[in-house]
C-alpha cells in the first residue's frame, strides 16, 4: 500500500492503495466515479478511456503509481453540464444503444478532436478503432465526430 495524491476532474484526492492498482479501479472503487467502464482489463476495448494530461489513455492498464500528480479527466469531468461538443453531437445523432462503451468512445473522440480539429475518415478510423462497440454504432459515432468537429 502507498499513498497517492490524484487530481481528477480538477479535484484533489488522497488514496491509499497498492501501487499496481490500475487507475480504473481507483476511480471506480475508491472515488466512486463509475462513468469509466471496465470492458477487458487489457487495453483492448477502450471502455475505460480517460484523459491523462489531455491524452487519451486506457485506465485499466495504467497503474495508479504512474497517474499520480497528473491531470486526470473522466467522462464525469469532460464538461460541467454535459455539453461538450462531442456529448452534444452524440445526442444529436442518438448514438447509444446499450450505452456501456459510449463513455470510452466519447473520451477517445474528444481527445481526437483536441489533436485534430477536423479529422478525416482515416483519422477517425485510426483513433476510434481502439474502442469496441458491441452494439455496432460505429457509423453514428463517425457521423457524430464530424458534427462535433464542425461545431467546435
Amino acid at each position: 500500500m502507498a499513498s497517492y495524491t490524484l487530481s481528477v476532474n480538477g479535484k484533489t484526492h488522497q488514496v491509499d492503495v497498492d501501487p499496481n492498482t490500475p487507475i480504473l479501479w481507483v476511480l471506480r472503487d475508491h472515488l466512486r466515479l463509475v462513468g469509466t467502464k471496465y470492458g477487458c482489463g487489457i487495453a483492448q476495448c477502450g471502455a475505460c478511456t480517460i484523459h491523462v494530461d489531455g491524452v487519451a489513455m486506457r485506465s485499466c492498464s495504467l497503474p495508479v503509481s504512474q497517474a499520480a500528480d497528473r491531470a486526470i479527466t473522466t467522462i464525469e469531468g469532460l464538461s460541467e453540464q454535459g455539453t461538450h461538443p462531442v456529448q452534444e453531437a452524440w445526442r444529436e445523432h442518438d448514438v447509444p444503444q446499450c450505452g456501456y462503451c459510449q463513455a470510452g468512445q466519447i473520451m477517445s473522440a474528444a481527445a481526437l478532436l483536441k489533436d485534430i480539429p477536423n479529422p478525416s475518415d482515416e483519422d477517425i478510423d485510426a483513433m476510434m478503432s481502439g474502442n469496441i462497440c458491441r452494439c455496432g454504432t460505429y457509423t453514428r459515432i463517425k457521423a457524430a465526430i464530424k458534427t462535433a468537429a464542425a461545431k467546435s
Partner: peptide, 28 residues
C-alpha cells in the same frame, strides 16, 4: 422519431448499470 430517454445520462457517465452500484458494506 424520439431521442433515447437515457442519452444524457449515458453521455455524461451517470451510473446506469448494475456494475456501477455501490453501497455501504458492499463487497466485491
Amino acid at each position: 422519431s424520439k431521442k433515447n430517454v437515457d442519452a444524457k445520462k449515458i453521455v455524461t457517465g451517470q451510473p446506469l448499470f448494475a456494475l456501477d452500484h455501490y453501497e455501504e458494506g458492499m463487497h466485491v
